[in-house]
Design a protein around this nucleic acid. Sequence first.
DNA 1: GCAACCTCTGAAGAACCTCTGAGCGACGGC
DNA 2: GCCGTCGCTCAGAGGTTCTTCAGAGGTTGC
Lengths: 245, 245
Amino acid sequence: MHTHRRPPSPLHGADGAPLRVLVIDDEPDLTEVLSGALAGEGWEVRSAADGTTALALARTFRPHAVVLDWMLPDIDGLQVLRQLRQELKTVCVLFLTARDAVEDRIAGITAGGDDYVTKPFSLEEVLARLRGLLRRAGMAYEPDGDQLVVGDLVMDEEAREVVRGGALIDLSRTEFELLRFLMRNPRRVLSKAQILDRVWSYDFGGRSHVVELYISYLRKKIDAGRTPMIHTVRGVGYVLKPESS
Amino acid sequence: MHTHRRPPSPLHGADGAPLRVLVIDDEPDLTEVLSGALAGEGWEVRSAADGTTALALARTFRPHAVVLDWMLPDIDGLQVLRQLRQELKTVCVLFLTARDAVEDRIAGITAGGDDYVTKPFSLEEVLARLRGLLRRAGMAYEPDGDQLVVGDLVMDEEAREVVRGGALIDLSRTEFELLRFLMRNPRRVLSKAQILDRVWSYDFGGRSHVVELYISYLRKKIDAGRTPMIHTVRGVGYVLKPESS
DNA sequence: GCAACCTCTGAAGAACCTCTGAGCGACGGC
DNA sequence: GCCGTCGCTCAGAGGTTCTTCAGAGGTTGC
């Protein structure tokens, strides 16, 4: 039956080579977490803590995508962007910015096809945006378009629409991200810690039972009156799986 | 004497060399037990009782994986992690933490691809997590993916699913761990003491007949109405073996 | 500034799991 | 065949984990 689970990500470009991403951020912890998560998704990752290093590295590494903190110790993010653009013809750039920072200015920049995420962000958000960028740039090998399917549950990431058995389901932002994470890891038990780390912002300190709460919300919307797809694995976590098995 | 049972694990990395693991913990007893179990699984093991020693050792030993106690006498676990990360590009880290320490956030850790286990833990849990980490990092030589098969009994560790003869069997956490241990040692008689040491937490003092109880539970779920696979060896222990033999 | 909505906390109850005790049955030695 | 030991299983106490309600506080959009 289902052998091949969660492909150790055959993430690669049109040319077949693995996709490369450069993470530029001066906070070591954040860089660490981002790099780890990206590597886990199959990216080939390099990182730099400042603009100068980053530009030098980009020259040889030639990344397909860049995750760029707007605030760097040496160079302004905009400068870095221009340089990158000049030296690499096709590169997708995802900005990381503080929430209250000049959103309008960034909005103008992203018109070029780039995108941005405001801090504090969740890993799921960053990963999803990056996938979106790549898809739009036509650089990603996408096995199944932008549709996520598990049983009769279908998610359209771009449209942010979720349908089960033909019925459109309305989800809040967090509910959507949680479900997306579950749908990206079907038939795999995910611990609450894993979920918290991926779906909630990295600065979410409060020990609480948010995950359980949101699972409860999701169940009410997804499983209501149907064969349940979200299952609790006591003492371990939760799994999303299609009915059969 | 020992025929080639339970291949002293052809555990080795993609490069063919045996996998190395570094155990960092200041409790000698625990280190001892962990090291022993890991060695028994085919790992090449080294250990250190504090962060400084560990980091020095890591430099020459270059472990593929690290089992790291969060509370060390000298350096904070997080510091050790950072250093390790910096010096070894690819290393899987498994944390050991006190139960209530989880609350003050080991965030981002699982996101980075690492994992943690709370004390008190069972050896099976540590070993299983470590295998999981390696698998996800693509470092392990995995003969058979994450499926454990004995006769018509199949266990999917990631999904935490157990199937016998096509029927899905629901197991509690302890039942699952016990069965996993049995399935990892098929056709081999395991003493109750061995089982207790591997499946139950190391601080489980109460000499009792839990093992018998749980074997009884398992039988009811696994063997119910079928040819028994779990056999008692009076005065010695239990064996799991496929029907034939 | 208001209304609608969302996110999180606290708390209570439900569901579930683990282990203890005890009785009974099975086995093997003699 | 009898007896002692070892193993099996029932039943239930006690603890843990999960679920859900209700509501405070914040954010968003109008």
